[in-house]
Design a protein around this nucleic acid. Structure first.
Lengths: 170, 170
DNA sequence: CGAGCGCTTGATTGAGTTCAAAAATCGTGG
DNA sequence: CCACGATTTTTGAACTCAATCAAGCGCTCG
């Protein structure tokens, strides 16, 4: 990006987007780790994404279309985050083509990685999804508590505990 | 798009992308309906996307990164399809910013809709997913056989049949 | 030292699958 | 237009994987 973006420190536990609010920012993580998550109608939490260093995290639908968001975004560790706001977004049109192409690149990568997760959710067992999680976020296995990983993988903490044991036995 | 794109007729059953091949095209559906799908390692088929009129369908990861694709794309009805190839993609850099911004718009919409499906898969029951399918593709319920819908929704045909009955009783 | 949180373990339950077979629908040729 | 075979959809029963429930262990932090 050719224009200036504001960075902020957010300490562990800070909620930077609350479901129900319209999201005024996209975030890029410089340091630390955030998560985005939803609650289903039985009150269970489901993690959509972890964002450690260099990942983007946001609710695009809310940000771009000024809709109340359905997701929460919270800092899991003391973190440092770049704020990208709507004025920045409007500025995109002043950027040279080359930078827009980069932007397109970022977006297509995002689509590709979401697609992979979709395939995974449709066609794999909890065990396969956990193994893929380890590939995708190699170092988060140590940094995050089991119950967060379970929520991302889409199984209960109890079941993930069982899976870990089973995998270790191999 | 300011440049010419080739359109082709593809008859029902034609496979326009086979898993294992590198995808040389993205497709936009003018008429008819296609599906993209994968097989899991137990041989079960999972439908990623239906593409009726005006939808795009492709395997971006394969198309952009020249990787062998993991998905199949097949015509479910006699259809008419626009082919968007790699030369067209390279031409993007010659387009004016305004058109690139439109492109970005398309991509972000894609991300948003995938995100919704992700949330759905993580946090809803088969019944809720079926109800959402009806919202997303209002007229496909009539056009497609139940077993395809089941594969998209992520339940067995038997279970979807049971769900339909249950929903009808309300 | 005790309270509370995170993880594990085992018993029970339940949503959705599997398997098998009947019923309905569709398509094709006579 | 009907008949017949093929395919799709429905139904029902048994089964299975992962969720729920409940208890227990081990830390850490106050």
């Amino acid at each position: 990006m050719t224009f200036e973006l504001e960075t902020k420190k957010v300490e562990k536990g800070t909620i930077i987007l609350r479901a129900g609010e319209v999201s005024n920012y996209c975030f890029k993580v410089l340091k630390g780790c955030l998560k985005s998550f939803v609650f289903d109608n039985t009150g269970r939490e489901h993690i959509l994404q972890f964002a450690p260093e260099n990942w983007w995290i946001s609710d695009l639908d809310s940000f771009l279309n000024n809709k109340p968001s359905g997701v929460f975004i919270v800092a899991l560790e003391d973190s440092e985050v770049v704020y990208f706001d709507k004025a920045d977004y409007a500025n995109l049109k002043n950027l040279p083509n080359s930078e827009l192409l980069e932007e397109i690149n970022l977006l297509t990568n995002n689509i590709i990685s979401q697609n992979k997760r979709l395939i995974l959710l449709l066609s794999s067992t909890g065990e396969e999804r956990y193994l893929t999680f380890i590939q995708t976020y190699p170092n988060l296995t140590q940094r995050l508590p089991l119950k967060l990983i379970a929520s991302y993988v889409g199984v209960t903490p109890e079941h993930l505990s069982y899976l870990r044991k089973k995998i270790a036995q191999k």
